[in-house]
Amino acid sequence: MSQLKDAILSVTARGDKAFIPYIMAGDGGLEKLKPTILKLQQLGVAAIEVGIPFTDPVADGPTIERAGERALANGTTLRKVVETLTSFADELTVPLVAMTYLNPILAYGVEQFAADAKGAGIRGLIIPDMPLEESETVQPALSDAGISLVQLVSLTSTPERMERLTKASEGFIYAVTVNGITGARSSFANELEEHFKRIQSYTDTPVLAGFGISTPHHVTDFSSFCSGVVVGSKIVDSLVNEDWAAIEELVSASKVAAVK
């Protein structure tokens, strides 16, 4: 059903863990989007999360917020990102997951966006300011286009809520590992393992950890109790510094971890 879910499951079926890097579209110019995505794809990532800049990114920490500001200054818009992705969609071998705040989608037109996004290789969508309760406005159009709406589950979600979110999430479950916004952090709560086990008990959809994962060590740690990780701020920083070695190290940790 979900191409995104299938892609992740095919990685975990091999014994590897799913690694999903987050990039901010338009950071450094939209012309960087194609080479960056193609190179990440070559490194063996499971999917690529493509962030769309927004004027008021309340769920993002300083690193991604600044990347978004740079992208906005370059004139990046949801429409231009979709156009750019469409131009090389036939070269994609991994699914793309767009992360955008709700208002740009509303301005684009929900149905039009879903149709165009499909043509751009977008197979999953994360809307950080749209909880499950508000998803009716976009869900039908996305389903028609075969785009999975990924739900975030947070540490503050009550057990009842966690179950509902987990069962509703398509593609994968994005388990937020800290209370707060995106960004690198040094330590994680010990109860996390229990938390992940509980989430996975509700579903066969893969659970991925995200928010604050910034070192190969984090990748290894988290991979031991979930299906993979999303890495955002650290990738964004590394791309700015053109430090591909750091990115490769992160990606390969998802494989080493799986071998253990």
Binding site: V58, A59, L102, P128, D129, M130, P131, E133, E134, Q151, L152, V153, S154, L155, T156, S157, T158, R161, L165, V176, N179, G180
Partner: peptide, 21 residues
């Protein structure tokens, strides 16, 4: 109903805030 005034309002916030709300 659900914090709506006609079609306006709602709870468009990150999941982390939902329990607090």
């Amino acid at each position: 109903v659900k914090g709506r005034f006609g079609r306006f309002g709602g709870q468009f916030v990150p999941e982390t805030l939902m329990t607090a709300l």
